[in-house]
Design a protein around this nucleic acid. Structure first.
Length: 423
RNA sequence: GGAUGGGUUCCCGAGUUGGCCAAAGGGGGCGGACUGUAAAUCCGCUGCGUCACCGCUUCGUAGGUUCGAAUCCUACCCCAUCCA
């Protein structure tokens, strides 16, 4: 943790520090000086191991956004190359190898996200590069001679990433062991070719990042001076859980995988104690305003949460979608009647048993019919506001007012069940 | 390679004189009440199914004994600790 006791000279570090972005700095004074002197180029890498980024990745993205707004130039590295290796950081076992087609399609989908958070034009335009471009052509012997010589196994196995695995006596495959070298090499390439002097990442990346810093120092500095790295804290909620996970899994940034309505609801549902922290990291609001808004206590905090949800949704899905999600929330959870913006599922025929509907993957309210039955009998389900405790009840055509039945499951799930042909 | 202890349901962890074990208890999760779509609290559920008292699958793996096994036998795999 960094001591913010004596304020940083650079606006960038001051802002990151006051908003809660900083966990560790490789050399606080040097980074501060570099950021204060003028625009620098920095990068963050993402391995395309899933079809979408999720809220957990958003900390880094927001940090890039902050720095870019202060004039610094972001580079996003898509890790098509490193994704073929697999980062063992934070993983207790070897993950299955991703096939190249999956990686390529992930890259395409993930790439769309950055445009929403970063400026792609102007003096500090963000650029996106792919490390497969330089990693794929590496020759084994050449790489070992040029890069491998600068690493000692002694040092590597001392880093947390590898240490954890070894301490747990879990297998650490040789391919994974190489991951750190490749990430360090990425940094070196970006340093040499694009003058990139700072790498950002989650705190689990510290070992990999510092390896790059050291590699650059050992292979010889150029005019850009020493390279540095900075990590962000792993965000947890007040009750100690990982940020961005819900019972249904990760909260994705891709609208196809997590509709704006659900995304908005995720923020609305946050713990009271987290509101200020979340506003600082996930919105563009000024800290003065955040502090002022967070003065309130109790039920009044709901308004602040609505602000958080709106701002966060706006950044990710646009202002229009955020407004729609906000008003849909008021309608669906308040006394309102207009569910038009609530996510929908389509059924081909009205005669669907309630259990079958709730277990259907499109709804996925419950993992099994058995559980669905139990919950339905327990009063968890409402149709058009009316509790329905009969699992085997079928929906009837006449229930569909305007082709639609309003389904509530538990406190949070709201869906419109729409009668229609195509899905 | 040798000795001893151990591998149980999402996690931790009971259960090994064979049936009353789908398997105690805790955690987590979900649902209900309360409420502010929060927290805390209380109550309920927590293997699957064509599902109340029925069937099926599950206690490291594969076989075996038995009317019947998480519990007994055999082989194998893995883990912990100690010895070489």
């Amino acid at each position: 943790m960094t001591e913010p006791l004596d304020p940083y000279a650079s606006a960038a570090l001051r802002e990151l520090a006051t908003r809660g972005f900083i966990e560790q700095l490789s050399d606080a004074a040097a980074i501060d000086a570099a950021l204060a002197t003028g625009p620098i180029t920095f990068y963050i890498g993402y391995d395309p191991t899933a079809a979408s980024l999720h809220v957990g990745n958003l900390v880094c993205i927001m940090a890039m956004r902050r720095l870019q707004r202060l004039g610094h130039r972001p580079i996003v590295v898509m890790g098509s190359g490193t994704a073929r290796i697999g980062d063992p950081s934070g993983k207790s076992e070897l993950r299955k190898m991703l096939d190249p087609d999956a990686i390529a399609s992930n890259v395409a989908r993930i790439g769309q996200v950055f445009g929403r958070f970063l400026e792609l034009d102007g003096d500090a335009a963000a650029i996106v590069v792919d490390n497969f471009d330089w990693l794929s052509g590496l020759g084994y012997i050449g790489f070992l001679r040029e890069i491998g010589v600068h690493f000692t196994v002694n040092r590597m196995i001392a880093t947390k990433t590898y240490r954890d695995r070894l301490d747990a006596e879990a297998p650490l495959s040789f391919i994974e062991f190489n991951y750190q070298l490749l990430q360090a090499y990425d940094f070196l390439r970006l340093y040499r070719e694009r003058g990139c002097t700072l790498q950002l990442g989650g705190s689990d990346q510290w070992g990999n990042m510092i390896a790059g810093v050291e590699l650059i120092r050992r292979t010889g500095l150029d005019a850009a001076g020493p390279a540095h790295c900075l990590t962000f804290p792993l965000l947890t909620t007040t009750d100690g859980k990982k940020m961005g996970k819900t019972e249904k899994g990760a909260v994705w940034l891709d609208a196809a995988m997590c509709p704006p309505f659900d995304y908005y609801q995720f923020w609305i549902g946050c713990d009271d104690g987290d509101v200020r922290k979340l506003l600082a990291i996930y919105t563009d609001l000024e800290m003065d305003e955040i502090d002022a808004r967070c003065q309130v206590q109790g039920a009044a905090l709901r308004e602040v949460k609505a602000l958080l949800a709106f701002e966060a949704t706006k950044l990710c899905h646009g202002e229009e979608a955020a407004r729609a999600a906000a008003s849909a929330a008021v309608q669906a959870f308040g006394a309102g009647d207009d569910w038009s913006a609530v996510p929908q599922v389509t059924v081909a025929t009205p005669n669907v048993r309630l259990v079958d509907l709730l277990v259907d993957p499109a709804v996925a309210a419950f993992p099994s019919k058995r559980q669905a039955r139990e919950r339905i009998s327990g009063g968890a389900v409402k149709l058009d506001g009316e509790p329905c405790r009969e699992p085997d009840r079928e929906l009837r055509a006449e229930q569909f007012t305007d082709q639609c039945v309003r389904l509530q499951v538990g406190k949070k799930l709201r869906l419109r069940v729409v009668l229609g042909g195509s899905p």
